[in-house]
Design a protein around this nucleic acid. Sequence first.
DNA 1: AAAATAATTTAGATATATCTAAAAATAAGT
DNA 2: ACTTATTTTTAGATATATCTAAATTATTTT
Lengths: 221, 221
Amino acid sequence: MKLSLTEENYLKAIYHLSDDSAEGVSTNAIAEELSTKAASVSDMIRKLSKKKVIDYQKYKGVQITEAGRKIALQIIRKHRLWEVFLVEKLSFNWDEVHDVAEQLEHIKSTTLISRLDEYLGFPTMDPHGDPIPDENGEIKESPQLPLSEFSENTIGIVVKVPDSDPSLLRHLDKIGMKLGSRIRVIEKVEFDNSALISIDQSKELYLSGEIAKNIMLAIKE
Amino acid sequence: MKLSLTEENYLKAIYHLSDDSAEGVSTNAIAEELSTKAASVSDMIRKLSKKKVIDYQKYKGVQITEAGRKIALQIIRKHRLWEVFLVEKLSFNWDEVHDVAEQLEHIKSTTLISRLDEYLGFPTMDPHGDPIPDENGEIKESPQLPLSEFSENTIGIVVKVPDSDPSLLRHLDKIGMKLGSRIRVIEKVEFDNSALISIDQSKELYLSGEIAKNIMLAIKE
DNA sequence: AAAATAATTTAGATATATCTAAAAATAAGT
DNA sequence: ACTTATTTTTAGATATATCTAAATTATTTT
C-alpha cells in the first residue's frame, strides 16, 4: 500500500483520534487536528476509504481498519525511533524533536528503520515516554498513573508527558524532570492539589496540580 | 528562500549539469536527468527563474545564479552527510545509500544538519569520495586522477567512484575496493589498458581499463 | 539560403490537495 | 414534532506538478 505524505498524515491523525473514544472519528475533529477545513477532510476521507485503510459512511464518521492501523503504527514507530536518535545521538532536547521527527517519519525504507532500531539498541519508548511499536505493530505498555493520583511516599518513574505543549516541556526541562526521572511524592497539599516531590533523589520542589495531572509515572514502589 | 521538494530536485539537477560544461544547461538535458518531459521542464524553469535561483532566456538554456548555487550546495551537503551516517553508523553498503539519502536530503532543519555534521566528526567526503561542502558552500577538493592514468609502481587512495551505477559499485564491493583503499599499480597491460593492482597491501588482481577509468585516486606516492 | 531536423515553448488536460460558499443531513432545544 | 443550530458534504475555484500534441524558434544539412 502506497500512501502520499498527506495521506499518511491524515491516517496518523485518525489513528490518534481513535484512541480518545470508541466512536467513529468526526470530520470536524480531523480538520481541527490537522488545522485544515472540513471540506478538505471530506475529500481525503473518500480517498482513504477507497484504499481500505478506513471505513466510512457519509455523515457517520470514520473508523480505522486493521490495515490502516498497521500502517499508522509503522509511521508512529518511525517517528518515535527518530526522536530517540535525535535526543540520544544528536543531543537534541526532548522539546525540540517533534517537528524534525514529523518530517523524518515519512522517509521510505524498511532497511533504514530496522538498522536504526538496532543502532539505538531496540528502545521501547521515545523521549516523551510513549511506547515504540515493533515491526508488527505490537505495543508493550507498562502500567502507569498521573503523578496527581500518586499518594504520599510512593515512587514512580516518569514515562510519559504530552509532547504537544512546548511551554510545558521547557518548564520540565528547567526543573530537571526528564523521561526516566525517579519521582517521590513527599507530601500532597489538599488546598490546591499541588505536591511536594523530589526528582532523582536530590532536588525537592512543589508541583502544581495542573502540571501533576499531565505527568504519567510508572508505578515503582 | 523556500523551495518545494520538486524545485529542490530541479535545482540540484541543474547544478550537477552545470559542471559538465560552461554553457547554459539545455531543457532537454534537464528532462533527461530527471526522467521527465521537456514541457514540464519549461514550466519549472520559469518558476525557478522568478525565484532568482537561475537565469533564463527563452530558447537559450539556463544558468544557475550564485543564490541558486548556494542552495544546491546545501542540499548536496545534506545528501552526503546522510550518506556518511548511513554507511558509518548504520552499516549500509556504499551502493545502497543513494535512494535513502535522496529522501533525507530534503529534511528541513539547520540544527539537525549541524548536529549531524558534528556527530559524524565533520567528515570532508562522502562514502563515494565526493567532497562535502561546508555550511557556507565551500568545497575543498584534493588533487586526483583516474586509476587508468597512474603509471606503474605508484600508489593512490580511492577518493571517488561514480555513485550512479549500482552494478559497478557492487563489483567494487565484491573485490574489496572501498573509499580510502590504498591502491598500488603493479603493472599496466598495454594490449587492453587493464592493470594489475593491489588493494590495501594484500589482494592482487587485474582491473579492466573500463573500470580503471572510473576510479579516481588521490596521488599518494 | 532554403529545406529539413531538432529543441523548446505554449496550449490545453489530468491528478492531487487545498479552499470558500452553498446545499444537505443530522443533532439539539423548546 | 418542529424549528434552529451544527455538522458534513458537494460544487466550483485555485495552485502545483505533471503530461500530450501542436506551434514556434534554433540549428543543421545540402
